[in-house]
Design a protein around this nucleic acid. Structure first.
Lengths: 209, 209
DNA sequence: TAGATTGTTAATCGATTAACAATC
DNA sequence: TAGATTGTTAATCGATTAACAATC
C-alpha cells in the first residue's frame, strides 16, 4: 500500500464522526457533493481522500453511509481492541478515563497510575488508582497497547523512556514536551497550551486589523 | 500585513516552548541551524517562518533567545490579558482550570459553570462552580474574551449559539462536534477522540505491514 | 578582514482542486 | 437509455527546502 499522507489521515476521524451522525439519522446514502456541503470541504477532496484506501462508492449513486462508516472505522483500527492505561490520575487523566464513548470503540482502560500518595488507592469510575511503581510490570503483564501520559512535563520523559524499555509502542502524550522517543515508537501529542496559543494568536491578529 | 498561513501559526507555539526552555537554561543566542537540530525541523523552515513577522535575527550571530521568545509571545498575543470562563465543570473543565501555567501567561479563568445541580456550589481551586443560567449575564458583565466548552456535544452547540448572541467572539471547543458558528467567531477545536483515532490508525498501519 | 549566519529568492515537492471519462 | 456521481488524471496552488547574496 502506498504511503498515506498525514493530512489525509488527520481528516479521517472527522469523516467518521459525520458518517456516524448520518447513520444515527437513518440516512442510507450520501454523495461526495452532499457530504462536502455538510462538512465544508470540497467534494474532490473527499473522493481523493477515500480513494487512497479503495473505491467505497458507486457511480451514479454515491456512498452507502453504513458501509463507509464501517470501512473508515476499520481503517482507523477501531475494529480492534486497545488496552490503555493512564499515567497521571489528576483531573485530566480522570477526564479521559471517564469518557464513556471510548469503551464503545474498542478502548479498554484497564488502570490509572499516579505517584501522588494522596491519590493512590482512591477509587474512580475506572477502578482504583495504582502506585506508579507497579506500572512497568503491569504494562508487560497485561500487554498494554497505549499509554496515555497525563502528567507534568518533568517526569513524563523519564517515565516514557522506561515504558519504551518495557516494550510500549504507542503513547498519547498530554505532557507539554516532546518525548524524543525512538522512531518506531508512536507518539500522538495533545499540547493543550499550544492549542490555546493558536486561538490567542487569532484573537490578536483580529484586533490588530 | 500579509496573510500568515495556518501551518506557520501552528508551529509558533512550539518555537515558543523551545525558546522558553533555552532561556531557562540561560542560553543567550541560538542559530537557526542549532535550533533546527533541537526541534527536528529544517533551518530553512525556521527562518522562513520567523521572517513572516520580521527580521528577529542578526547575520553572523543568529537569534537572541530572550528577545525572540518575547517577540513570539507578543505575536501569539501572550502579552495581553485574556479573561476566560469554563463551561462544563467536569474533570476536563477542572483540569483546564487547574493548569497553573495559564495564569503566568495572561490567562485569567474567572469562573466555571455547569448545569449539573450536584456540581453547582462546589468549590474548586478556581472558585465556586456557578449555575449555567448565570453564564450569559456573566460573560457580558465581565467582558469575557474566551469561553472554553468542556461539555458533551449535545448541549454545546445551543450554548455556543447563545453565547455568540451575547457577543462572545472566541471559543476553545472540547465538545465532539463542529459548532458551526458565524465566520467572525473564532473556534479552536480540541477533538480528543479524533486525536486518539490518529494514533490507532498508525498502530494498525504498522501491524498490517 | 574572514567567518558565520541571516533574510530572501528560486527550485522543488506535495497537497488541493478541477475536469472528465468510466460506469452504475 | 439518460442522469448522476464516482474514480482518476491533469492543472493549480501552496508549502517546504535549497541556495546564495547581503551583512553583521
Amino acid at each position: 500500500m502506498e504511503k498515506i499522507s498525514k493530512a489525509v489521515v488527520s481528516r479521517l476521524p472527522r469523516y467518521y464522526r459525520y458518517l456516524e451522525e448520518l447513520r444515527q439519522q437513518k440516512i442510507e446514502r450520501i454523495s461526495s457533493k452532499e457530504l462536502s456541503k455538510l462538512m465544508n470541504v470540497t467534494a474532490s477532496q473527499i473522493r481523493q481522500d477515500l480513494n487512497n484506501f479503495g473505491g467505497f462508492g458507486q457511480q451514479g449513486y454515491g456512498y452507502n453511509v453504513s458501509y463507509l462508516y464501517e470501512e473508515i472505522g476499520k481503517i482507523l483500527g477501531l475494529n480492534q481492541n486497545h488496552k490503555m492505561v493512564i499515567v497521571g490520575a489528576g483531573n485530566l487523566g480522570r477526564a479521559i478515563a471517564n469518557y464513556g464513548n471510548f469503551k464503545n470503540r474498542g478502548f479498554e482502560i484497564t488502570a490509572l497510575f499516579d505517584q501522588n500518595q494522596e491519590l493512590i488507592g482512591k477509587k474512580t469510575a475506572e477502578g482504583e488508582i495504582l502506585d506508579i511503581k507497579y506500572l512497568y510490570d503491569y504494562v508487560v503483564e497485561h500487554n498494554v497497547d497505549i499509554v496515555a501520559l497525563t502528567l507534568p512535563k518533568g517526569p513524563a520523559k523519564e517515565i516514557a523512556d522506561k515504558l519504551v524499555a518495557c516494550g510500549v509502542k504507542a503513547f498519547w502524550n498530554f505532557a507539554h514536551t516532546d518525548l524524543g522517543l525512538p522512531e518506531d515508537v508512536l507518539v500522538e501529542n495533545v499540547h493543550l497550551s499550544e492549542s490555546l496559543m493558536r486561538l490567542t494568536y487569532r484573537i490578536s491578529e483580529k484586533t490588530q486589523k
